[in-house]
Design a protein around this nucleic acid. Structure first.
Lengths: 102, 102
DNA sequence: ATACTTACTTACATAAAGTAACTAACTAGT
DNA sequence: ACTAGTTAGTTACTTTATGTAAGTAAGTAT
């Protein structure tokens, strides 16, 4: 093992290559959303979604806000660091449009 | 489950969110490479690398060439479809540089 | 007290990835 | 001929990640 890859790139890729993380971020780019809404829109299980949102929050990519309504509403949204991923998502979109069959 | 996400985007993200796939492609962007070279540069196990290269070949992203030298040399390189992922990789690089600590 | 909501968590089952030994095909050396 | 060395994998087995479905917590309404 003589790694020649930039460790920062490796870390960045590490996020994206975790299952569901990319789709969660993509989904949040269209605005703040609640747990059950993300869950149903991308088809991730609650167990993993909960895990991912915690990780993303710890990394400062996602923000969690509690609204003490009834029943309680909890919204997840992107921080500045998360929004900065938009150009990357657009590149994925472009490549997918150009090279993948529907 | 009422998915609202573009199925092509979902498929594209599906590749990238497979562990190692992104790093393999990134590594091949610097030129054709052989099995053991990819293995050691990114630290993936032979078992998974073999699996990924087969998938990528089936998807038309990677090309496999056999040179009957001694000992045999087998080179993996990107197809046009694979090279088209370069701008995407650059975006990951940019974001990682700007938002991740070394 | 019971039922209903959202946002989780827990226990258990299945799938994916890591590890290390092994094989195939070939050559080189003794 | 026999042993060893090379690359490119594969196989069997272990560990980790994810899926599934039931359960919990906090609140309101009936």
């Amino acid at each position: 093992m003589d790694k020649s890859i930039c460790p920062r790139f490796e870390k960045g890729m590490g996020f994206l290559s975790q299952r569901w993380t990319g789709l969660i971020i993509y989904q949040l780019l269209s605005g703040p959303q609640r747990f059950c809404s993300i869950e149903s829109s991308i088809g991730v299980s609650g167990r993993v979604l909960s895990e991912r949102l915690k990780d993303l929050e710890n990394e400062g990519i996602v923000k969690r806000e509690v609204f003490p309504e009834t029943p309680v509403r909890i919204e997840y949204s992107l921080t500045e660091k998360g929004i900065a991923l938009e150009p990357l998502m657009q590149e994925i979109e472009k490549w997918s449009q150009n090279w993948l069959k529907a």
